[in-house]
């Protein structure tokens, strides 16, 4: 889908995605635990938001005019920390502190610990409601800022998501865009086998949302969908981002054992070699 975005810009975003994957894998290996698969599947979404779409001032994390991002699938924290770091919210050496005592990068996002993190998430199902609250406050204050909330597909099994989905459309939250990282897996196995969430588009449309179904690793597609979401009036938007769990690393892609397992040193080296190769091909 052509978005008119300059090919040089797309190339730069691809470079940033590679850097994010490098950061994520190094952080997880250093931490010795964490969620590899679901951090790698959200990379292009986060890079599109933080390096193309969203307005913010990283030297002023509470800048009132900023757009807001809520990582409802809080276990994707490593990817968020990487983009926040590369966006300038905190220095690179913070990345080594992930999951460590005394570090500011907690296992799951905490607003009082990490600059740029808006709310606390990690227990699934609670981010969309919080995003609604932020969107309501922005509307009350007459601010044009937008709110983005990223959910997992397994997370959609939480009942609170559907309570929140009703609230978003009831209160006409057109300043809200939710995204589902549809990587088809949850911790115990394929989403469809564990507890089917389908039909996904029909469900959200029935709840009053504008829905797009896209390739969640294609920058043109993501940027186009984000733009159309912004143009939508009087209803919230949902982007179903079809992704690959563990995207970018051949031996991690679709291997669900990496849901909550960090790469060891050998796996890290192999993964970094793959990413280096990908970089040369850009």
């Amino acid at each position: 889908m052509a978005t008119g975005v300059d090919s040089g810009v797309i190339k730069d975003l691809k470079k940033k995605a590679l850097q994010t994957r490098i950061d994520v894998l190094k952080m997880l290996c250093e931490a010795g635990s964490g969620h590899t698969g679901g951090s790698l599947s959200v990379v292009e979404i986060l890079v599109s938001l933080y390096f193309f779409k969203m307005k913010y001032r990283s030297d002023q994390p509470k800048w009132p005019e900023r757009d807001r991002f809520v990582l409802s699938k809080g276990h994707g924290a490593p990817a968020l920390y990487s983009v926040l770091c590369r966006a300038g919210y905190f220095p690179e050496d913070y990345l080594n502190s992930l999951r460590k005592l005394g570090g500011l990068l907690q296992g799951h996002p905490e607003s009082r610990m990490t600059p740029g993190v808006e709310v606390c998430t990690g227990s699934l199902g609670q981010g969309l409601s919080q995003a609604n609250g932020i969107a309501l406050a922005l509307k009350m204050d007459g601010k044009p800022s937008r709110v983005y909330a990223l959910m997992g597909d397994g997370e959609l099994q939480e009942g609170q998501i559907w309570e929140a989905a009703m609230t978003s459309s009831h209160y006409l939250l057109d300043n809200l865009c939710a995204i589902v990282d549809h990587n088809k897996f949850q911790i115990d196995g394929p989403v469809e086998q564990i507890m089917s969430i389908y039909p996904l588009r029909d469900k959200w449309e029935a709840f009053g949302w504008y829905v797009e179904d896209i390739d969640g690793h294609n920058f043109d597609a993501i940027i186009g969908a984000l733009k159309r979401a912004e143009e939508e009036k009087d209803r919230p938007s949902l982007i179903i981002a079809n992704t690959v769990k563990g995207k970018g690393i051949s031996f991690i892609e679709d291997q669900n054992k990496y849901h909550g397992v960090a790469p060891d040193k050998d796996e890290l080296d192999r993964a970094l070699a793959e990413l280096q190769e990908a970089k040369l091909k850009l």
Binding site: N132, G133, I134, E163
Partner: peptide, 18 residues
């Protein structure tokens, strides 16, 4: 918020964070 206490508390948090 209708009959949805969980959504209410999290929404209240979003409002408070703003």
């Amino acid at each position: 918020m209708g009959v949805s206490e969980q959504d209410m508390m999290s929404t209240a948090a979003g409002l408070a964070s703003s």
